[in-house]
Amino acid sequence: MLLTVQDIHKTYHTADGPFDVLRGIDLTLASGETLALTGESGSGKSTLLHLIGGLDTPDSGKILHEGRDMAALDDAGRAALRRGTVGVVFQQFNLIPSLRVSDNIAFQARLAGRHDPDWDAALAARMGLTPHLAKYPEQLSGGQQQRVAIARTLATKPRVVLADEPTGNLDEATASTVLDLMLELVAETGAGLLMVTHSEGLAARVSRRLHLRAGRVA
């Protein structure tokens, strides 16, 4: 199993008192499988994604990446996981504004030490980014920027792709194209995809869907 999540709890402490975001989540993701996480705002989708991506740590429960327990990882270990095993596509594109598109695409792969220029070029071509490689992110449209972010993630050939509303800032047509590309590429690399979305249309196009409500799987 690529990913196993067992009985995850997470509570935030806010000014209005403690707020239980996740109250016992279980899920699994197999190689090649694509899974959509849906739910209302505040249902805990993004938090769950962050926990799986090692951006945050759960209060209790287990997250296993290919059988390895994340609880055993320190900060450096979680960083290594983010570099090599999982790839996160954020809602905001999170590009490095001072780097050219080509450098942004190569960046994470370079960090992970598995940079493959040919694969980069192929990704860029598939994403339609080839004419824009020398540009800076601010010179691109929103859809183009999101494609750069997806290319950056896929450039590292991660085992698990985590996507947080990857098309949330895009118009419907663009969103559809981008998702097609992502599904295609995930299938090719044999990775698993876990995508947070509030769009029923998008959720319908993946192999499985999970609906969260008030911190539980509905």
Binding site: A76, A79, R82, R83, I96, S98, F107, Q108, L111
Partner: peptide, 15 residues
């Protein structure tokens, strides 16, 4: 700050 967050999210160890 935003760049720092991105770098960390992409797997750069804090240290």
């Amino acid at each position: 700050r935003p760049v720092v967050r991105t770098l960390r999210a992409l797997g750069l160890p804090l240290r």
